[in-house]
Design a protein around this nucleic acid. Sequence first.
DNA 1: CGGTATCCCGGCCGATACTG
DNA 2: CAGTATCGGCCGGGATACCG
Lengths: 136, 136
Amino acid sequence: MDLTERPDLPFDVFSKACPSRGTLEHVTGRWGGLTLGALYEGSLRFNELRRRVDGVSEKMLSQTLHALERDGLVHREAQPTNPPRVDYELTALGRGVAERLLPLVHFVEGNMAEILAARERYDAMRASGGARGALG
Amino acid sequence: MDLTERPDLPFDVFSKACPSRGTLEHVTGRWGGLTLGALYEGSLRFNELRRRVDGVSEKMLSQTLHALERDGLVHREAQPTNPPRVDYELTALGRGVAERLLPLVHFVEGNMAEILAARERYDAMRASGGARGALG
DNA sequence: CGGTATCCCGGCCGATACTG
DNA sequence: CAGTATCGGCCGGGATACCG
């Protein structure tokens, strides 16, 4: 397959004004991707999600969920019980996004050792003073 | 395939301290993804890249390229000519990332109309005052 | 051409307190 | 439990100027 072949769509992410850039940032931002990933495993309540996405604050989780719900990727199901119970789950669109996002995440996780090695090489090269090759 | 099945790796992105989160942000951040996408189409020079990635500033492109180079995703080839010529291209690892990133980007682009419609519905619902259904 | 250095603002984000 | 309100720090990122 040729991934450079771009279908003739009305939206082009390379264009400055393309609204897809905004959604892409919701989806791939610091918390958006982790939230979608967690929900891909199944419906979760607010605090379950908060525990699953290690490090997220109440505020950011709430904000992230609102953005994803607005984009039609997450469905919010509130039950008017006491205490209140709210479940979050992916929509069909959200599953589509998650199915394409997770392979990327897993690929990076799986190659993290190589990435860390590349970083060490890069940093060592800079520290030792330049762009010369192995021979110095 | 079951994307929830996570191989037993030393790195887990859901964990607060996982370094993959950093690389993921380089890759999916505001400019990282567009830069990888542009380079997936072929090797490019600095200003070619700058024109292709509409809206990026010199500073952010430089910063983005450094981060991607450090992570071993992009290779920088400088020729000591005058005027200077520098080419950027994806490494094998970078192509692996791009191949998983592009389907996500294309999916969002392709479903942008639906996403925008979801936003309008969401905003209209909020403006009209509540979580009631179609019957008001 | 291919960058780096500096200034500065907006908003991301965490911490804390409060509400239904 | 499931959030909202408010404050403040930090830094992403744009504008501009400058360098080899």
